[in-house]
Amino acid sequence: MRRISTPDDIATGLEALCAIDPRLLPVRAVAGNVPLRLSEPGFGSLVSIIVAQQVSRASADAILGRLVKLVDPLTPQAVLDAGEEIFRKAGLSRPKQRTLLAVAQAVRDGLDLDHLCGLDAGEAIGRMTAVSGIGPWTAQCYLLFSAGHPDIFPARDVALQSAVGHALAISPRPAEKALIELAESWAPWRGVAARLFWAYYRETRGRDAAPPIQVT
């Protein structure tokens, strides 16, 4: 399976998407630069995505910035040893505290986040979502940005729903199920399509809503 690992891969994917669906030509024109947004696989990358769950990008950046200063180095054992007061200072909600602890324990017990990047997407997502607190969105974003998976579209993402609805004049904006069906036509480049619509959202809304990544 081809991986999205360079800016040239993004360019190739965008060309293919616009050929598949000409409606994406004006979307590409508005979006401008579509970043690669690739991080090294591992615990830090997954933590950054967990932090981004259900909060704005600005809030996620602030929380992650505090967390990496308070827990340095950001390792599974350090998270397990951190204690509630450090999590509170970082600004993590209790559900996210529980998720981080569950993930740290799973990694310490043998969950290989690097190995997951080489698996079929369905199998990798299944293994990740078996960990308490990790849902499909978190697993999909990890595979997009840490594995460079070319054909994943996190349809649960509200910013993607909003961007697709605005760009393609769909009102009300497509919900998860409708967006999954719509994105099927963009295979096998759905990972690039997600990046395209996050970039479109950035340009039309004036703020970045793509999940932060922790480059290690």
Rank of each mutant, 00 (worst) to 15 (best):
M1W: 13
T6K: 13
P7S: 09
D9V: 06
D9L: 08
A11N: 05
A16C: 04
L17I: 05
A19R: 10
I20Q: 13
L24F: 13
L25H: 10
V27Y: 09
R28G: 13
R28I: 07
A29K: 14
A31G: 08
L36H: 06
R37W: 07
L38T: 06
E40G: 03
P41C: 07
G42P: 07
G44K: 12
I49E: 04
I49N: 02
V51F: 12
V51L: 10
A52H: 11
Q54C: 03
V55L: 06
D61G: 00
A62I: 00
L64I: 04
K69F: 01
L70P: 00
P73W: 01
T75E: 03
T75D: 03
Q77C: 00
Q77D: 09
A78Q: 11
V79L: 10
D81I: 00
D81M: 02
E84K: 15
E85N: 03
F87I: 06
R88E: 05
G91M: 01
L92K: 01
L92I: 05
R94H: 15
P95H: 10
Q97C: 09
Q97V: 14
Q97T: 13
L101F: 01
A104V: 08
Q105F: 03
A106C: 05
V107G: 04
R108Q: 15
L111G: 07
G118D: 09
L119W: 10
A121I: 04
E123H: 12
A124R: 10
A124C: 06
A124T: 05
I125Y: 04
M128W: 04
M128L: 15
T129F: 07
A130C: 02
V131Q: 02
S132P: 00
I134H: 11
I134T: 11
A139T: 07
L144Y: 10
F145Y: 09
A147H: 12
H149V: 04
H149C: 09
H149T: 02
I152F: 09
A155C: 05
R156P: 01
V158R: 03
S162R: 15
G165Y: 11
G165L: 12
L168G: 02
A169C: 06
R173V: 05
P174T: 05
A175W: 03
A175D: 14
I180M: 04
W186I: 04
W189F: 14
G191P: 04
A193V: 09
A193K: 07
W198F: 15
Y200V: 01
Y200G: 08
Y200T: 02
R202W: 15
R202H: 14
R202Y: 14
T204G: 07
D208M: 10
D208W: 08
A210P: 02
P211C: 06
P212W: 14
I213Y: 08
Q214N: 03
V215Q: 12
V215C: 11
